[in-house]
């Protein structure tokens, strides 16, 4: 199977998010960069599928040159090829332009499957995978937590023909059958991603990364500023210590109307 995985470079967020003075971006002077847990799971899923069924994993990102760091991280996990869509021009790429740039890479290879995260950690647009699928005219399933591949061995060479993709929604399990080639966005929980191995890290360090420049284009949804929501002035009422506070806790639960 040939699998393409799309990942995005985002700031690592710890105890609190701080913004740059102009409110245009997250302040990253004190933090590093990473990819979202969903995308880490997408890479892991791709590597497992290829380990099991053969083929190779390509990773792609649209971002600044520094995003090579995230591509090398994915290479160290078992991807074998990486493409950097180098974002040129000032401005934050929106989901329409992002999907369009990713589509150019997806179309350039014969990929059976394209995996993405369900949503990016930073912008949380919830749409790049779906837009990409429409551009490729392929079926798409999103928010997937379980994935398996069906093969057709009849024609002599064993060919991947479809995937079964499942998720839960409001206490209902939803299963989708997608003929390949297809696009699937995944969520954390689909697997437990591995840590990079030492040989993997060495291989990743030496790997060459293909670079393709992409010009920025504005979209109909434009950010003006970012802000940190103000948490209302708030102090917790301390009910006390240990089991002695249990009667008070029962009283509070009654006041909150959760005791029938």
């Amino acid at each position: 199977m040939e699998i393409l995985v799309c990942v995005k470079r985002v700031p690592t967020v710890g105890g609190a998010i701080t913004l740059t003075a102009d409110g245009q971006a997250v302040d990253t002077r004190m933090s590093g960069f990473t990819i979202s847990p969903h995308e880490e799971c997408a890479v892991e899923e791709a590597v497992r599928l290829v380990d099991r069924h053969g083929g190779s994993v390509t990773v792609v990102t649209l971002g600044p040159v520094e995003a090579e760091e995230q591509l090398r991280f994915c290479l160290s996990l078992g991807a074998s090829k990486a493409v950097l869509l180098e974002a040129c021009g000032a401005g934050e790429f929106g989901p329409i332009a992002t999907a369009s740039a990713l589509a150019s890479v997806a179309e350039s290879g014969a990929f059976d499957l394209v995996l993405l995260g369900n949503e990016a950690s930073d912008t949380g647009d919830y749409q790049v995978g779906i837009r990409l699928a429409h551009l490729l005219r392929q079926p798409v399933a999103t928010g997937i937590k379980a994935l398996s591949v069906a093969f057709d061995g009849v024609s002599g060479s064993v060919e991947a023909v479809s995937v079964e993709a499942a998720r839960e929604y409001r206490g209902v399990s939803e299963t989708f059958q997608l003929p390949l080639p297809a696009v699937v966005t995944v969520k954390e929980g689909i697997n437990l991603p591995r840590y990079p191995s030492l040989p993997g890290r060495l291989r990743a360090k030496r790997a060459s990364i293909e670079r393709i420049p992409v010009q920025f284009a504005p979209e109909g949804l434009r950010m003006r500023t970012l802000r940190v929501p103000v948490a209302g002035q708030h102090t917790a009422t301390v009910l006390g210590h240990g089991v002695d506070a249990v009667p008070d806790l029962v009283r509070v639960l009654g006041e909150l109307g959760v005791l029938s």
Binding site: I17, D122, G124, L221, R224, T225, L226, P229
Partner: peptide, 19 residues
């Protein structure tokens, strides 16, 4: 004129939607 969540609601974005 919109306000939307980013970072799962840890940040808010003031934005304009023109469509």
């Amino acid at each position: 004129e919109l306000v939307r969540q980013r970072w799962a609601g840890l940040l808010l974005e003031d934005a304009v939607l023109d469509a």
